[in-house]
Nucleic acid binder design. Sequence first.
DNA 1: CAGTGGATGCTCT
DNA 2: GAGCATCCACTGT
Length: 191
Amino acid sequence: MVAHLGADFFDRSVHEVAPALIGCELTYRGVGGPIVEVEAYDQTDAASHSYKGRTDRTDVMFGPAGRVYVYRSYGIHWCMNLVCDREGYGAAVLIRALEPRHGIEQMRERRGGRGDRELAAGPGRLTQALGITSELNGASIGKDLRVTPRTGQEQVAVGVRIGISVAVGQPWRYGRTDSRYLSRPIRPKAP
DNA sequence: CAGTGGATGCTCT
DNA sequence: GAGCATCCACTGT
């Protein structure tokens, strides 16, 4: 029985939680590994789904911390977030990449036999590798989905977020400096 | 390598 | 009807 993070870990500013998640192990039904890349989104942020207020889609973002917000991206992919901050405030961390460590064979099957570097390097790839869909939207962490604390010190790099068209200069992307499993290299500022 | 465009579904205007 | 918190295949250096 390994200790895992509960709702209290997430019940604070997303800007504290996001960097603290780097190096924590995330597994869904035993499949996963250490998180190497995340992005923070909060209610005052024009790039956040919660920016324009609570809607049917974004409802989970405004709920209690420690729940899972899953949305469809570009009509094809699923992206997974962990909800942060107090109830009523819309904030979440987008999980963008992890290092494959547990259940690698299952990840390979789900990802069409791609190389290890392409199993979970990117938010759409990660959910596909772990078998996460909208069925998980609104679920609480701690059962099928677990996050365990990191064991050592991590070198966390900070950069600008990817794939957005507003608030592009905000340094709210975090990642392990030395990881081979990032979706893209971390750049301090947009070029 | 870098750059481009298509796939595809849903939310919000 | 526009626009997306993406990925992949394909092209050309």
